[in-house]
Amino acid sequence: MSAATFNRDSIAETYAKRHKETDPAIRAIHYLPTGAPPNEIRLVEVNGAITGTAGPEPIDFGVEFGTPNEHKLIVFDVTPEQWERIREGTLPLPEGWTLKGSREIRSRKRK
């Protein structure tokens, strides 16, 4: 299987769905593919349950090492207030990240 079969958008949606199911405090998940390496998934997760005074910092996880779907997942957890500041441009995203081309991954409504 070639690297071209790795479907980043689809895997990002799978993560977003799973994270929302796992963590009810999530308000929104934004997917930021612009400028990311092909096998890197960048998510900003807006979470209403974050406490503490620390500034947000991303955490990265390697996934499926040694398989055709090997990729890196990076999650940037922020409070709703921090997300507003990011949108306003007063709180920076991690270096190299951009909101350009980003989209919110919403849960599909059940019929």
Binding site: T22, D23, A25, I26, I50, I59, L73, V75
Partner: peptide, 15 residues
């Protein structure tokens, strides 16, 4: 591991 990776409280425990 899924709970440490896929939910904010888990990621925060790792941090």
């Amino acid at each position: 591991w899924a709970r440490l990776r896929d939910a904010e409280p888990g990621r925060r425990l790792v941090k």
